[in-house]
Amino acid sequence: QDAKLCERHREKLHYYCEDDGKLLCVMCRESREHRPHTAVLMEK
């Protein structure tokens, strides 16, 4: 099964943002929008 990719950055989605309920890639996780949020690394 292929991992889902971030629509914005075309990177694999490794994080779940608990504040927004969205899946994030590393680039999104470090963005100004999500940096202050609680995001957890998803298990494989």
Rank of each mutant, 00 (worst) to 15 (best):
K4D: 09
K12M: 04
C6G: 00
H34S: 04
H37Y: 01
S31Q: 08
H14Q: 15
R35L: 07
R32N: 13
K12Y: 09
A39Q: 11
L5T: 10
L5Q: 04
D19S: 08
E7A: 10
V26M: 06
K4M: 11
C17L: 01
L13W: 08
E11D: 01
C6E: 02
E33G: 03
V26P: 12
D20K: 10
R8T: 13
E18V: 07
T38D: 07
E11L: 03
C6S: 02
K4N: 15
V26G: 13
C25E: 01
K44R: 12
K22I: 02
H37S: 05
C6N: 01
K4A: 07
E33A: 08
R10A: 13
K22R: 08
C17G: 06
M27I: 15
L23V: 07
C28S: 01
H34E: 07
R35C: 01
R35I: 03
H9Q: 03
P36Q: 14
H9K: 02
H9R: 01
E7M: 03
H34R: 04
M42T: 05
L41E: 14
K22L: 09
M27E: 12
R10T: 05
D20C: 15
L5M: 15
S31R: 05
M27S: 12
L24F: 01
K22F: 01
E7W: 03
R29I: 02
E43A: 07
E33H: 01
E33V: 04
E43M: 07
S31N: 14
M27D: 08
K44N: 15
L41N: 13
E18Q: 09
Y16Q: 08
L13G: 14
Q1R: 10
R35Y: 05
R32H: 13
L13M: 11
S31C: 11
L23W: 12
Q1D: 04
C25L: 00
A3L: 15
K22E: 15
D2V: 13
D20P: 02
R35H: 10
P36R: 12
L24E: 07
R29F: 04
A39E: 09
R8K: 14
E33F: 02
A3Q: 15
P36C: 13
E7Q: 08
A3C: 14
Q1T: 15
C17M: 01
C25R: 00
E18K: 13
L24D: 09
V26Q: 14
E43H: 14
K12Q: 02
K4F: 11
R35T: 09
A39F: 00
G21E: 10
P36Y: 02
M27T: 13
M42I: 12
K12E: 10
Y16M: 05
R35A: 13
Q1E: 12
R10Y: 10
L23F: 13
E11G: 03
C28Q: 03
H37C: 06
L23G: 07
E7Y: 14
E33W: 01
D2M: 13
E43C: 03
L13K: 13
D2G: 15
G21Q: 11
M27Y: 11
Q1N: 06
Y16K: 11
Y16C: 03
L23P: 05
P36T: 13
Q1W: 07
E43D: 11
T38H: 13
C28K: 02
H34C: 01
K44S: 13
C17A: 08
K22G: 04
M42R: 10
C28M: 00
Q1V: 11
R10S: 13
R10W: 03
R35Q: 08
R29V: 10
S31K: 02
D20N: 15
Y16F: 15
R35N: 04
Q1P: 07
P36S: 13
E30L: 02
D2S: 13
C25H: 01
L5W: 03
E11I: 04
C17E: 05
T38Y: 02
R29D: 03
D19I: 08
L41F: 04
H37G: 04
H9T: 02
G21M: 01
D20Q: 08
R35K: 12
C25T: 02
C28W: 00
Q1S: 11
V26L: 09
D19P: 03
R8A: 14
S31E: 15
K4T: 07
K4S: 11
E33Q: 08
D19F: 11
S31P: 03
E7I: 08
H14T: 14
K22C: 08
A3S: 15
M27P: 02
L5D: 02
L13E: 15
E43I: 01
H37Q: 05
R29C: 09
H14K: 15
C17N: 06
E43V: 04
T38A: 11
K22V: 07
L5N: 04
H34T: 02
M42W: 05
C28R: 00
G21A: 11
M27W: 10
C25M: 00
C28Y: 00
C25K: 01
C6P: 03
E33D: 05
H9C: 01
C25D: 03
A39H: 11
L5H: 01
D19Q: 13
Q1Y: 03
E30Y: 13
R32E: 14
E30P: 00
H9P: 00
R32K: 12
E7V: 04
L41C: 07
M27N: 15
Y16A: 08
S31V: 03
H34P: 04
R29E: 09
M27V: 13
C28A: 00
K44Q: 14
L24Y: 03
L24S: 05
G21N: 06
D19L: 03
E33T: 07
Q1L: 11
E18M: 07
L24W: 05
H37E: 09
M42N: 15
M42D: 11
E18R: 09
E30C: 01
L5R: 08
K4H: 15
E11C: 03
M27K: 14
V26H: 15
K12G: 09
C25S: 00
